Simulated assay, not measured.
Amino acid sequence: MNEKRLDNPAYRNGRDLPEIDCVLIGVNSAKTLGRCIESIRSGSYPPEKLRICYADGGSTDESIAVAKRYDGVRVLALTPEYPTPGLGRNAGWKSGSAPLVQFLDSDTIVDPEWFHKAVARMRDARVGAVIGFRRELHPERSVYNWIGDLEWNGPVGESDCFGGDVLLRREALEATGGYDETLVGGEDPELSRRVIRAGWKIERIDAVMTRHDLAMTTVKQYLKRAYRSGYGFAAVRAREARLGSPFWKADFRKIAIKGGGFIAAESLAMVTLFAARPSLTSMLASATIGLAGVPLLFSPRLFKVGKFMRENQLGRKEAKIYAWHCSAVVLPQLAGVARYYAGAIAGRPLRNKRSALKTGLSQPET
């Protein structure tokens, strides 16, 4: 670790704040990258203590040119055949030397006070990672952005994982080896678990960390994101299960039981209807079997609206919308789970195509 330890009295008195390597990753992120860099530099933390690195995953737009317009920004132009978040993040933190590393997606905006608040929590030597709240810039622009704003965050206090925006000790990265570069989803929670097993705590503080524009406006985008999240659930759960960890066990079981049970019931209903001679009995049997799968899939909408109202402080209308999401999302997630296991058997994991990766805005900024 850096010779100046974070628990030094000079840090506690605010006379000598630690340096921070800010690692931004992106592919085709020209629309948002400049805004992210400017948010880092315009905050209250001393700019001379912040070192910015942009790790580009093989952009075909003006992303690299945008980054080079800013003096002092270190640019790593990576050209992997199949880019992953872990590749960029590892290249970024390994190119620096600061005792703290802030990872950011290039489509985020850092809160002006974030670094001061996060560093203050890092004075506890047991804390290896600090996270805050990620807030959507425009939840009103689409129901998908609104759902993202609900789901980005968890309760304040000790956490079992972090996401793409996190302040980490370099010590923790060196001890764990950093990110798994093969994962196209779930790479942040996967590293989180190794950080915890190495002896550190992850803390969520009561502070806004970043603002973000999910820029999701279509059903296709929603389904693709859910599919990839299902793939990530399966990939991380497989690793954790081998270690005897219960992490994401309940989430994985929910996808398997609700989504799998519904698909199984509907499939059996179709077999019952068409495998036998058409009759009133076969139709009734098919309908009964098909209806049996409905409560499995739609249990959030049928039984949990009140719970969502209380836990998320939502009105009944908003809670119903969120319940529909929680019901339907398991189907594309189940497809992602199936893709993970099929790929594991065939030796063909899911891979990113550079041409398909980009960041954007919900609508042009004015």
Results as ranks from 00 to 15, higher is better:
Met1Thr: 13
Tyr11Ser: 13
Glu19Val: 10
Leu24Asn: 06
Ile25Lys: 12
Val27Pro: 00
Thr32Leu: 03
Thr32Glu: 03
Leu33Tyr: 11
Arg35Val: 05
Cys36Val: 06
Ile37Gly: 11
Glu38Trp: 14
Ile40Lys: 12
Arg41Tyr: 13
Pro47Gly: 13
Glu48Cys: 05
Lys49Trp: 01
Leu50Pro: 08
Cys53Asp: 01
Thr60Met: 04
Leu76Ala: 08
Leu76Thr: 07
Ala77Lys: 14
Thr79Ser: 09
Pro80Phe: 03
Ala91Glu: 12
Trp93Asn: 02
Trp114Asp: 09
Arg121His: 15
Ala125Gln: 11
Gly128Cys: 08
Phe133Lys: 08
Arg135Leu: 09
Arg135Phe: 00
Glu136Tyr: 04
His138Arg: 13
Tyr144Arg: 07
Tyr144Asp: 09
Trp152Ala: 06
Gly154His: 15
Asp160Thr: 03
Asp160Lys: 06
Cys161His: 15
Leu167Ala: 08
Leu173Phe: 10
Leu173Pro: 00
Thr176Asp: 14
Asp180Gly: 12
Thr182Ile: 06
Gly186Ile: 02
Gly186Arg: 03
Asp188Val: 03
Ile202Gln: 01
Glu203Pro: 04
Asp206Trp: 15
Asp206Met: 01
Met209Tyr: 02
Arg211Gly: 10
Ser229Lys: 08
Phe233Ile: 04
Arg237His: 15
Glu240Asp: 10
Lys249Ala: 15
Gly259Asn: 14
Gly261Tyr: 03
Ala265Val: 13
Ser267Glu: 05
Ser267Asp: 02
Thr272Arg: 06
Ala275Ile: 00
Ala275Glu: 06
Leu280Ile: 10
Met283His: 13
Met283Ser: 14
Ala287Thr: 14
Gly293Leu: 09
Pro295Arg: 03
Leu296Cys: 04
Lys304Ala: 11
Arg310Tyr: 07
Asn312Thr: 04
Asn312Met: 13
Gln313Leu: 13
Glu318Gln: 12
Ala323Gln: 08
Leu331Gly: 01
Gln333Tyr: 05
Gln333Gly: 07
Ala335Ser: 03
Ala344Ile: 04
Asn352Glu: 06
Ser355Thr: 11
Pro364Val: 11
Pro364His: 11
Thr366Tyr: 08
